[in-house]
Amino acid sequence: MNKLTRLIRGEVKRLVKYKILPVSLATAAVWIGLFLFISAKEAREIAPLLIFVDVAAMSILLLGASHHLEKQDGTIRTMMVMPVSLGQIITAKTAASMLLAIESAVVTAAALYLIHGATFNYALLLLFVAIAGAAHAAIGFVLSLNSKDFTTMLGLLMLYMFVCTVPSILFSFGIVDAKYEWLFMISPSHSASHLISSAVRGEYQLAMIIAGCLYLTILAAALFRFAVYPKFKDNAARG
């Protein structure tokens, strides 16, 4: 088993042991329960929002919880003196965070099919969730690395959601006129929301999808390279 695989397995094992994955599954189960009481059309309307909340908010929250638990345990520092690269450590943590986002998408998609017989392009949804998940994992890292404890991180997350996520949710409820959507795409949350909604509803605006994918990919790469990578080591060294 190579070192990256071993790191990812360790991260997933800790997601279970630290009750992060079970909590995520329990949240998804609540959403499934909701599907039992609404129509197929309503379910298809609301499903993207549920997946989006897990990708854009829950994954950041769980990544922050995991980061601050590990910081408290001192394990980030000891991992920095193992024969693995910083890139491998960050990749493993990002993969674990994306697993939570993908798990939510899979559970929601399965519930839609089993309860309402609704199907859609699963491969495209997984691709979009992966792109949005990576960007939001990077945002989660930035928030975690710039907060001294989990409470501070929650404050930063609330601020991020107020600025980026809430407007997108308002947009999805039709409160904001659709002609302003290009403007909203600056928000990583809205780009993620647009991609996920497109895949679940089967409504594709090619230019917006390409823009959303490119923006989130470039944002993720830039954040990992310039904000996460240098700060992570500094954070570990200072303890």
């Binding site: 088993m1 070192k3 071993r6 360790g10 094992k13 800790r14 042991k17 630290y18 590990e70 345990d73 001192g74 394990t75 520092r77 000891t78 003196v81 193992m82 024969p83 693995v84 303890g239």
Partner: peptide, 26 residues
């Protein structure tokens, strides 16, 4: 490296911790 402060995953057992770290060395 033996740090002054504990550096282990508190929700894992001692053996699970040691096996995890040992897995990265030749």
């Amino acid at each position: 490296v033996g740090f002054e402060v504990p550096v282990h995953f508190t929700k894992l057992t001692a053996l699970e911790n040691m096996q995890f770290f040992a897995g990265f060395y030749k």
